[in-house]
Design a protein around this nucleic acid. Sequence first.
DNA 1: TCTGGGGTCCTAGGACCC
DNA 2: TCTGGGGTCCTAGGACCC
Length: 399
Amino acid sequence: MHRKILHADCDAYFVQVARLEDPDGAGKEDLLLVGGSSRQRGVITSASYAVRKFGVRSGMPTAHALRLCPQAVVVPVARRACSRKHKEIHEVLGEYTPLVEAASIDEFYLDVTGTEAVHHTTDLHELATRIREAVLARTSISVSIGGGTTRVIAKLAAKKAKPGGVVTVNPGEEIEFMKTLDLAAIPGVGPRFQEKLRDYGLVRVADLLPFDVDALSVWFGEGTAQWLYDRARGIDDGRIEPHGVAKSISRDETFARDINDDDALLTELMRLVGRAASDLRSRELRTRTVSVKVRDPDFTNRQARHTVEAPLESDRAIYDVARELLARLRKTRRGGVRLLGVSLSGFTDRHGVEQLLLFNGEKQLETDRDRQLARTVDQLRARFGSKAIVSGRTMPGHG
DNA sequence: TCTGGGGTCCTAGGACCC
DNA sequence: TCTGGGGTCCTAGGACCC
């Protein structure tokens, strides 16, 4: 029995949310851009369909977008509203199947296999249309929905359905559908891989279909060959996983101007650690691996990471590790810093069993007092707002 | 007024263990 | 007196996605 997979993809999500949040402002602008300002070295997160006609795409520097379409209005991303809407949409989708996976802030996969009796239809297209209308009616967000027997087919069908439509691919018709596409359309085939494919004359999906896995293995290696062979035929046995647990939590910032001063960098580092760590604690997790990233003015990315034995959760302990890592990166190469970032990974559950006896090779990095302080600050912020408490340590370099 | 911020996954080499 | 091999963990870097 084949599966029935749907992919619901919000149309120009950040633009839609911006309009809902400010109906008299952004809501009235036809030529609307959402993203960072050009003065802050920002890029476009989402462009209204009217601006896309000028060649503007998301990911493009805002300065570039405004050169293509000077009349356009730029508004910042409404992060709170976007995650609120995300939850609303998720809730509506959850009424059609328990198997809903949030793939990103504006994309969801649904496995609706076996729900025919509940929804009184065997027609996937009809079900998808109903879901689209329900999401629109209940959340005011327009989604496009694609459907088929696998994740990759559903996703590509959703792309074809944009904006605001429904496209489903019948079982057995996957190859016919895939033949209409470029290899670049397949998720996972990025610019680098496209270039390599082009070296062998492979641009369209149809160009690739004549080759078996062995032939493709010679060019791309066994694993990649099998992966590509399958995807080009719409084969994808990836399941829909409703309960994704984060594997990393990161916060980074590109500065309006490169920062060279060490104390200024430490102040920024402390802010980033504070944001990442409070997110960590809100999920009741602890981290073992702390990573610090810098981007040099020439756009080189460098990273240093350290794994500790006993998991951490307090700003203080994480900051102490991060500071050492930044010092290491600064030692390797001095000069301005364009971007600074902190990433936490290697999580353990906060309620897990303490294995203190194992941690004898390392001095205690975090005490109960550190943890208690961090949690108290979290509680005060939750009650009085995030600006209620600011760090008492004003000279981060000398703490 | 060139190039964001949040993620996932993969690779490759070295350390270390059995 | 000659160098095994598998597994796991860690670090660094990079491709890719939205």
